[in-house]
Design a protein around this nucleic acid. Structure first.
Length: 599
RNA sequence: GACUUGCUAGCUCAGCUGGUAGAGCACAUCCCUUUUAAGGAUGGGGUCCAGGGUUCGAACCCCUGGCAAGUCACCA
């Protein structure tokens, strides 16, 4: 009976049982291994690479550059972003949340005594780009005039084990070797934020936009509220919802597609102005302007109509752009867009008449359908008049509106939650705000007639029976709320992501979302099953041979035969096992290449 | 969902007609006390997205799949 396993057997078991498949034992790159070694060396020197102590930062890089004071002592912290080591003196860049500043390390200033370890070993050898450090030192200007900090004290705050992409910017502001691969940038946004300062700026602007909007509403004394995301009936928009299940209630729930119906219930309840910044969820296609979850601001104000809301919206946008950007003029993809109020107002039917010559109001559904075909639109029998008008506008008119423009008075079938137009019952009191040919806001004089509302829901049901999978559900509780009475109200929704895209000159929604939705990254198995089986086979064969060593081609033929591998597969497996150090190939004798299992 | 393009070192990218996998930065070693994307010299580093096929031989050709981007369709 064997009492102990040989080291070879232990190693094999380890691999064959999948013990080495955990993420912790993945194969590390050379640079990752070196950083882990540096980590241990720091510990040996008595330096904690992840200290718990507060670090008393008293300045940002930005402040020092704006208010330079020769010789003034400052304490800064951030990431080490570059190093230029020149013997007893070195330069480095420190990046904090506001920007970068140059550090100057002089060996004898940093280490005035006999012991030069902090400079020679810690700074020069054991620190790497990406590490967080804290420094205390004096402000000064180099001979070339760059504001720098002469470092007198250096503290390791956090060691980085993975190397950052190195992005260098030259004197003309041109980035070299920029970290640009969209997949990596979105999946590892933390890295993107570290190395691409513009990205940080986009998200700062995003927050400023929301804050400015919130301030504007609060100044009007409207109340910020929160309403359910998990809803039994997904209402307020025409869209396919996500479905989920609540275990305790044993019921299906939907992730909200809009917050409209809940906010109107609050108006019924007696609030005069309510608004919400809401994440909505739609189970639809994804592209550069659609993410499955997105942010919308919706506001409802009692005793107002859509004319008032147009006024309010343009004032809000004027206020917001001038506060956030310092100007109402925005450059988007080379196009100058001016958010200064007032904006043009164009009835949708007038717009269609202007851009296509079609007088939709005067035509029957069939006549309109024929006209649309004539104009090259794809139409089918399920499309009602409203849908045809929508298509016509979307295809032929929308793109003309580059400057902010209100398109108003949509057909009633397109707007089941909107009050009928006071002068024409075929239309509704609705506007959409178009900017650069894209909708960014949508608003109504809200429908508050409960009987009309119920009929409109029933019309939606008919559409859904006709095959429209986006027709709205009937929300009986919402109708009941209206039966208690809702004051005349105007409501408006604005797509925050799209607005931020305009204000930051981004054409992709992913650029304004920290973590855009992506398919999960595939996991590469640490070792394939074939490799494990091949290793077992090889070791079985070698274990009965003296020196555990044999001719490679002989083993290859045997293994390919035993495991029914392709030659290509054998090659892969061989490389994999060599990489893991589980077999060794000795090619010193070209005539007789040997394979062995290392001790 | 369809089509197009891409996937090679930590990062950015070359790699011709199938013939031993390359550069710059980063990294390591040595030299250097105010440098400016990059100081000098030397060196190490690869699952060429995955799987299958063709071939004496595949990063490269063929098939299937994965992920991403772009265009279109749908939608806000």
């Amino acid at each position: 009976m064997k009492l102990a396993l040989s080291p070879l057997e232990v190693k094999l078991n380890h691999y064959l049982c999948g013990q080495n498949l955990s993420p912790m034992s993945r194969v590390l790159s050379e640079q990752e291994q070196l950083r882990r070694e540096s980590l241990q060396k720091l510990r040996k020197l008595g330096i904690d690479p992840y200290p718990a102590d507060l670090f008393p930062v008293d300045h940002y890089s930005e402040e020092i550059k704006e208010n330079y004071e020769e010789g003034k002592e400052v304490v800064l912290a951030g990431r080490l972003m570059s190093r230029r080591i020149m013997g007893k003196a070195s330069f480095a860049e420190l990046q904090d949340s506001k920007g970068k500043i140059q550090l100057y390390f002089n060996r004898d200033e940093l280490c005035p005594g006999e012991d030069k370890t902090l400079y020679n070993d810690v700074f020069k050898k054991l620190l790497d780009i990406g590490d967080f450090i804290g420094v205390k030192g004096k402000q000064f200007k180099t001979q070339v005039g760059e504001i720098s900090i002469q470092v007198e004290e250096l503290t390791v705050l956090s060691k980085a084990l993975k190397p950052l992409p190195i992005v260098k910017t030259d004197s003309e502001g041109k980035a070299h070797d920029a970290f640009t691969d969209p997949e990596q940038r979105y999946r590892q946004r933390y890295v993107d934020l570290v190395v691409n300062p513009k990205v940080k700026e986009t998200f700062r602007t995003r927050t400023k936009v929301m804050n400015a909007m919130r301030d504007f509403f609060n100044q009007h004394d409207y109340l910020e509220v929160e309403t359910p995301i998990l809803q039994p009936i997904p209402g307020g928009a025409a869209a396919r919802p996500f479905i989920t299940h609540h275990n305790a209630l044993n019921t299906e729930l939907y992730l909200r597609i809009a917050n409209e119906l809940y906010l109107k219930r609050l108006i019924v309840g007696g609030f005069e102005g309510v608004y919400e910044f809401a994440k909505d969820f739609r189970n639809e296609g994804m592209d550069r302007t659609h993410n499955p979850e997105f942010t919308v601001m919706e506001i409802y104000v009692a005793y107002k109509d859509y004319h008032w809301m147009m006024d309010f919206t343009e004032k809000m946008l004027e206020d917001l752009t001038s506060k956030v950007l310092g100007s109402t003029e925005v450059e988007f993809q080379g196009e100058k867009i001016n958010f200064k109020a007032p904006y043009a107002k164009v009835p949708i039917l007038d717009s269609i008449k202007e851009h296509t010559g079609v007088d939709a109001a005067a035509l029957s559904e069939n006549e309109l359908r024929a006209k649309c075909s004539e104009l090259g639109l794809e139409v089918d029998e399920t499309m009602g008049k409203a849908k045809l008008i929508d298509e016509l506008f979307g295809e032929k008119c929308e793109h003309h509106y580059v400057q902010p423009t209100f398109i108003i008075d949509y057909p009633v079938e397109m707007s089941p939650l909107c009050k009928k137009h006071r002068d024409n019952p075929a239309l509704t009191e609705r506007f959409e705000l178009l900017v650069n040919g894209k909708e960014i806001a949508n608003a109504y004089s809200e429908l508050n007639d409960p009987i009309d509302q119920l009929e409109r829901f029933q019309d939606q049901l008919k559409l859904s029976e006709k095959g429209d999978d986006e027709a709205m559900f009937i929300d009986q509780d919402f109708v009941r709320a209206l039966e208690y009475g809702m004051p005349p109200t105007s409501g408006m929704g604005i797509g925050i992501d799209r607005l931020v895209m305009f204000l930051t000159d981004n054409v992709s929604i992913q650029e304004v979302l920290f973590f855009p939705q992506m398919k999960p990254e595939k996991k590469v198995p640490e070792m394939t099953d074939e490799a494990k089986r091949a290793l077992e086979n090889i070791s079985k064969r070698l274990s009965i041979i003296p020196n555990h060593e044999a001719n490679l081609d002989q083993i290859k033929l045997n293994v390919i035969h035993d495991l029914d591998l392709s030659k290509k597969k054998w090659d892969k497996v061989k490389k994999e096992l060599v990489k893991h150090g589980l077999i060794e190939i000795d090619a010193s004798d070209r005539e007789n290449i040997k394979i062995r299992i290392p001790e």
